[in-house]
C-alpha cells in the first residue's frame, strides 16, 4: 500500500508539472514532448487503479499516434510562436483575474466535497470485480451491451469526421498521372503494340 501511495504521488506530481510545462514552454516542440510525458504519467495513474487496458490504450493511441502527429505538424508548419505570444502580456491582467476567480470557485466546490449517502447508493459498481473478469472483457461487455448506443454513435461521429476531412481537403487535380490497375490488366495487345516492318538500313 505504501508503495502504491508513493507511486501515485510521483505520477501525479510529474503529471501536473508536465502539464504546466506544456503551456509555458517557449519551444513548441518541447511542449509536445512534455505532453507525451503527461500521457505516460496519466497511464501510470490508470495502472495504479487497475485499469490496465485504458492505460495501454492511452500510451498506444495518444503517445504512439496523436502526439507524434502533433510533433510532425508542429515541425512542418514552422510557425513563429514568438509572434503569436505577443498579445499575451496585454491580456494578462484581465485573463489572470478571470483565471483566479475561476480557481477560487473550483476550490470552493472542492471545499464542500461531501458525497451524499444517496449518491453512493446510485453510484453502483461500474463493472464486475477486478479479479472476476479481466479489464478488457469488462470494458467489452459494457460497451457492447449497456453503452452500445453511445458506442455506435461514436462510430458515426468518426465516420462524419472522415467524410469531413475528405470533403474539405480532397481535390481532384488535373494532369496527375494515376495508376489504374484494371486498365492496366485489361489492356489488349493490339491497342498498345504495333508491329511495323522496318526496312533494312532505312532506320526507324
Amino acid at each position: 500500500m505504501l508503495l502504491t501511495g508513493i507511486a501515485f504521488y510521483i505520477f501525479a506530481a510529474v503529471l501536473v508539472a508536465a502539464a504546466v510545462m506544456v503551456i509555458s514552454a517557449k519551444n513548441p516542440v518541447h511542449s509536445v514532448l512534455y505532453l507525451i510525458v503527461c500521457f505516460f504519467n496519466a497511464a501510470g495513474l490508470f495502472v495504479l487503479m487497475g485499469a490496465e487496458f485504458v492505460a495501454m490504450i492511452l500510451v498506444i493511441v495518444y503517445v504512439g499516434a496523436v502526439a507524434v502527429l502533433f510533433l510532425f505538424v508542429v515541425m512542418m508548419l514552422d510557425i513563429n510562436f514568438q509572434e503569436l505570444r505577443q498579445g499575451f502580456l496585454q491580456y494578462l491582467p484581465i485573463g489572470g483575474l478571470i483565471g483566479l476567480v475561476l480557481a477560487i470557485e473550483l476550490l470552493l466546490i472542492v471545499g464542500t466535497w461531501v458525497i451524499a449517502p444517496e449518491t453512493s447508493a446510485v453510484a453502483a459498481a461500474p463493472s464486475p470485480a477486478i479479479d472476476a473478469v479481466t479489464n478488457t472483457e469488462a470494458l467489452g461487455r459494457i460497451m457492447y451491451t449497456q453503452y452500445v448506443y453511445a458506442f455506435q454513435a461514436s462510430g458515426l461521429i468518426l465516420l462524419v469526421a472522415m467524410i469531413g476531412a475528405i470533403v474539405l481537403t480532397l481535390r481532384s487535380r488535373e494532369g496527375v498521372r494515376k495508376q489504374s490497375i484494371t486498365q492496366q490488366v485489361q489492356r489488349k495487345r493490339e491497342e498498345v503494340l504495333a508491329v511495323r516492318k522496318v526496312p533494312t538500313r532505312g532506320g526507324v
Binding site: 491580456y91 485573463g95 478571470i98 476567480v101 475561476l102 470557485e105
Partner: peptide
C-alpha cells in the same frame, strides 16, 4: 474569452 467570462 467572452465565453469563459460568461461561465465564471
Amino acid at each position: 474569452f467572452v465565453m469563459v467570462i460568461g461561465v465564471v
